[in-house]
Design a binder for these strands. Sequence first.
DNA 1: GAGTGGATTTCGCAT
DNA 2: ATGCGAAGTCCACTC
Lengths: 256, 256
Amino acid sequence: MADRKEIIVDPDFKEAEQFLRKNIMKRKFIIGIVDCEIRYEGRSSSKLTRGERLFILKPDGAFIVHRRTGYEPVNWQPSGSFASVINKGDHLLLKVVRPRPSEVLEVKIYSIKFIAAFELHDTGVFSMIGDEKDMQEAIKLEPSLVENGLKIIELERKTKPGFIDVLAVDKNGRLVVIELKKNRADEQAVIQLKKYVDSLKREIGGEIRGILVAPGLTRRAQRMLATLKLEFHPLSVEKCLNVLREKKGLVKFLPS
Amino acid sequence: MADRKEIIVDPDFKEAEQFLRKNIMKRKFIIGIVDCEIRYEGRSSSKLTRGERLFILKPDGAFIVHRRTGYEPVNWQPSGSFASVINKGDHLLLKVVRPRPSEVLEVKIYSIKFIAAFELHDTGVFSMIGDEKDMQEAIKLEPSLVENGLKIIELERKTKPGFIDVLAVDKNGRLVVIELKKNRADEQAVIQLKKYVDSLKREIGGEIRGILVAPGLTRRAQRMLATLKLEFHPLSVEKCLNVLREKKGLVKFLPS
DNA sequence: GAGTGGATTTCGCAT
DNA sequence: ATGCGAAGTCCACTC
């Protein structure tokens, strides 16, 4: 049940100031719809002239301002920031400061439609499947997803330029460096793969294959791959998930 | 003034269903604090077990769910998505669908602390300074920020691999490719610069200098820069902004 | 629609 | 702290 005291409608500055101060101190999850003007100064600087927006101030100091449309917040401050409120008479100044890097966000509030503060009980567990890690896992369990006769040697093999997603040996005993991409692979992915192959060649020597494993390639990636004598094997994250389901039940979660 | 009808507290599913349907249709800015469970299916899949969260449903179809902490939303759907509500008896199902790529977000709502819907009048103007474009602008107005005797030829010069931030000639008449980074430049930036220099060499021929202009370099970027015989000139975005302020007043906005 | 690069990217992980 | 790569990245802009 929502407590009446949690929500206040059309407060004046004095009332709002007290409400905000109290609930910032109590580390509540605070939201409000306000007519405001916003200034940001930090890694960049921005200014937003007056209009109505939603703000969110979280118990961990995260602060987010949303406009009428769009996925992204127009202004924000990440977790670890500190909020304070001052009644300036003609407006309420909500200041959110991030210590390092030093950044300041100032919200000049001219009127308040409503503000609310909640406890927000949330012990829920978030789980996600279908990322690059899952492809890696699937290939480890079923290397033929990439190539028959492949044997996995190591995941996340460390090299000078970085970590190799999958290191394997093919049926002819040649080392195979595998670079995974969940989405269509671009030139960057090819360059990455090339770096790993070269590094391993310097380290170990001999002929080393490089295979880019992804659902597809951009044209430039295609060209560069050919130029650098690297290979490509198509593989989608969906197929990997199927394998995971077969092989280990994939108890992470099931469709509800 | 906030209209009483804009906010409803502790509604039952029937009341909430009607409220949401009506306000989705009227393209209002809708928010709510709900006890819910969330399932996402699309480019990946995710599941979030029960707990209290804030949701935002915007007039353009953007949908955002925030947990108690953190800057980022736990689940979302971008602008252009479509929301619908069904009363399932034991829960309210809020379904937000994105057509392309095909993605579905399902919020099973078990209880509602409050929901609200607003018009959100916002004609404010957002302006930002201090991005890479501003560095470009400043160097165009004051090339000595990079090097004395430099003359700017072209911004965003098109080459095969992409656009060169700044193309210039030095005092000895040699072409200079400038790659800008607002933050400390990494290996990627060096590779980018190298590509542009090489492409221009193939296209035009002759000796061509490449200068990475950024506030700093990562160690790997440093090494690679030396290997590839490219140059570095330190420059911060702040210094660029000072030049812009001097040279053209920078009327974008002033500190309040 | 695909492709490329920037972002106050954020976030996680390892050095 | 720095560095490096992933992200359901999103977004703008070009071809």
